[in-house]
């Protein structure tokens, strides 16, 4: 009975974690990329610099959502709360 409760709670927890992480990563990357595309349209000769900075920013912004995905994986496959 306890194992069923832990398993169910773990499944819900992992799903909520990944969902919120996806929302955060999507909104953050969308803001950065929209500003980058807009400034590339205003000044096409700066395209290389803007693209580099955009990729760096996406790598930085996606750090914490990816840590959240790793937490969800740990909950699903190596759950420390289930024996």
């Amino acid at each position: 009975m306890e194992h069923a409760i832990i398993a169910g709670a773990t499944a819900i927890a992992a799903a909520i974690v990944v969902g919120l992480a996806a929302i955060g990563a999507g909104i953050g990357d969308g803001l950065v990329t929209s500003k980058a595309v807009e400034s590339m349209a205003r000044q096409p000769e700066a395209k290389g610099t803007i693209l580099t900075n955009m990729l760096i920013s996406v790598g930085l912004i996606e750090a914490v959502p990816i840590i959240a995905v790793v937490i969800a994986f740990i909950l699903l496959y190596a759950n420390p709360l289930a024996k």
């Binding site: 990816i66 995905v69 994986f73």
Partner: peptide, 16 residues
């Protein structure tokens, strides 16, 4: 810490 976790999380998510 964020350096380590960022690289670890990205590559682990890809492998998994």
């Amino acid at each position: 810490m964020t350096l380590a976790l960022r690289l670890f999380g990205n590559i682990l998510a890809g492998d998994v």
